[in-house]
Design a binder for these strands. Structure first.
Lengths: 195, 195, 195, 195
DNA sequence: CATGAATGAGAGTTCATTCAT
DNA sequence: AATGAATGAACTCTCATTCAT
């Protein structure tokens, strides 16, 4: 990748991050192109050099988040850990990532409200992939006798809900730092599946 | 209340319900006054006879939801039940109400995005009241030895998150009816606090 | 048609006429919604109460012109006149209408530049219908021995071109009024087909 | 002219031709600098090295067309031919040039829509010059008794209109090649002035 | 010379809001 | 009480234009 291309990639990434942050805070419709741009000292017109339109920018920003989430979980899954510890680590990583990126957008709403067609498909696919990883992990833990018998889908959704909800109530000024909090939450959730 | 006043009150309620339904489906900004009105065969201009502006309409619609939720929980709390069963019933009622009203809006996002000033205060107050009921219930259950020692705030938030998340994945076409589902979820969540 | 509907129809017609006039003068792209509206002391936003978008407004304005042209020619064709006089009258009416409405837009450009899909189809159909009337008239005149043998298509296009071109050079300040001019042009063009 | 200057002149010519072609097809406003440039594998920024702005580029492109047209007609006029054949040749050359360059742009619309000031003056001057050549030719033909008595201005405009209109209906896939067509049209038009 | 990147003015469009009827 | 019609502010998007490299 040439220097130029790197610069473009960097700028794109910057814009995506800017979009993620502001959309996470204000929501899709309240976020204007102006705001996204001005955070980087650009003007709104410039965004269109990098992205086709607002849809495209937002879509890509959400895609990145989901892709990163999938990478995160894949790494944890590949580690050699007992099922209970693995599930716990999955949760901790998820919560920490969520808090770090304030990425409560797609995670926390119907993507159907914002995307359609090919874009929606991709988003849903990435979401499903992520969900399946957790479901599988639970199912295996059950099969191996580490976890108790549960409906994997429902428990997966309970866990996802509890974790994603964190962005609505976490405050950096609270008594716990994000890692401690993430561990605490994970411990409680683990009780659902432990024998 | 005169007949005329009753009619006005009825119309208001209709509009609030219409707003709740559409906003629950499409989100605040994607919902237009036109849509809210046309569901009742009115024109958008008429709404302004009943409500000051969109803000006001939405605010009141969300207030109703939260007030009803508080009434729901207060009724359950007043019943004479053991702590575990009481908490379970609280959850079941919450989930059923959520699904019935599709009221995932305020429940599922930062009210700060949409309200401010006095309105925000009221919404937050109602939310807090609801949250406190659950926190108290947990705390008492712990004190009485029915529940195990837990951080009531965190567990409360876990429970709320898991429950509120339901609206994003519940499908009426799924294998479980909403009551069965609500019971199932509640059972799993109960494990967090049970000894 | 109720009074209300009449008013709406009137307003629509006004907007179409405004659009025709300005587009005839400045062209499609240089004509702004603002200009079209302000000619009627409205604001551009109001246009969208009557028309879906600019495309729609322009399309309908051009459709009206072509439909009126077709009605004009149909009326002349239905009259009981010898072929040469009939063709002459067709031309006179065409030229006068053109000058009156300054309607050189669709008449004078590729509709493909501005319309597509169903709209383009309709425009082309109306254009073709008009062209066919003239072609038929020539063909019949030839068959009846009033006109000399000619390629009807080419002659039709020559006649249409000469007539439509008028809008680019006619000046109301010239020595001839529009009727005299129209008659003069028609006489010259008639020589192409006369024996 | 140095090599460098020659290169610049060549590049300029290329850009003008590119502009003529695309504008002929899509119209002034729908043609972007990007398109004009990309046809020559350049980027739009480069255009500004050769032309002051879009106006300038378009103006020069239209000027070239008109100048070439004038040269064309001057050459024909200088030939030693009878008036009828001369007029016919003028028409054939005009039509062929039009079709070859698809140059229906300025020829086919009010230059007032696009130019003003000095530029407009020049364009109009070139147009007038061209028109005058034809008017003169007709007038002389009349005086010499080859043509019948006609209003030279009106007939000139009829002829120009019929010819310029060709670009809107000529199709390379039609039954006639462009020379045959040009001759045919010219023959018909000649009938207007012949005795 | 050429380009990549940025700019900003201006266009079309949406929609909450108003108000005479 | 309701509505039709109009408004205007805000937003997305386009594109001619500029300029450092």
């Amino acid at each position: 990748m040439s220097l130029r291309e790197k610069k473009v990639a960097k700028r794109k990434k910057d814009l995506l991050m800017s979009a993620i942050a502001i959309i996470g805070e204000k929501g899709y419709h309240s976020t204007t192109m102006e705001e996204i741009a001005s955070k980087l000292l650009m003007t709104k017109g410039s965004i269109y050099y990098y992205f086709k339109d607002k849809q495209d920018l937002v879509y890509q920003s959400q895609k990145i988040l989901l892709e990163q989430s999938n990478e995160n979980i894949e790494e944890v899954l590949s580690e050699d850990l007992p099922y209970d510890e693995k599930l716990k680590k999955v949760m901790v990583v998820h919560i920490e990532y969520l808090i770090t990126e304030q990425s409560g957008f797609v995670m926390g709403t119907n993507p159907e409200q914002f995307f359609s067609g090919k874009q929606l498909e991709t988003i849903l696919m990435l979401r499903d992939r992520y969900g399946n990883y957790i479901k599988q992990l639970i199912a295996e833990g059950v099969k191996e006798g580490v976890f108790t018998e549960v409906d994997e889908k429902i428990v997966r959704n309970i866990i996802l809900g509890a974790m994603n909800w964190v962005v609505t109530w976490y405050s950096p000024n609270g008594p716990m730092d994000k890692t401690t909090l993430a561990k605490s939450i994970s411990n409680y959730l683990l009780k659902i599946v432990l024998k």
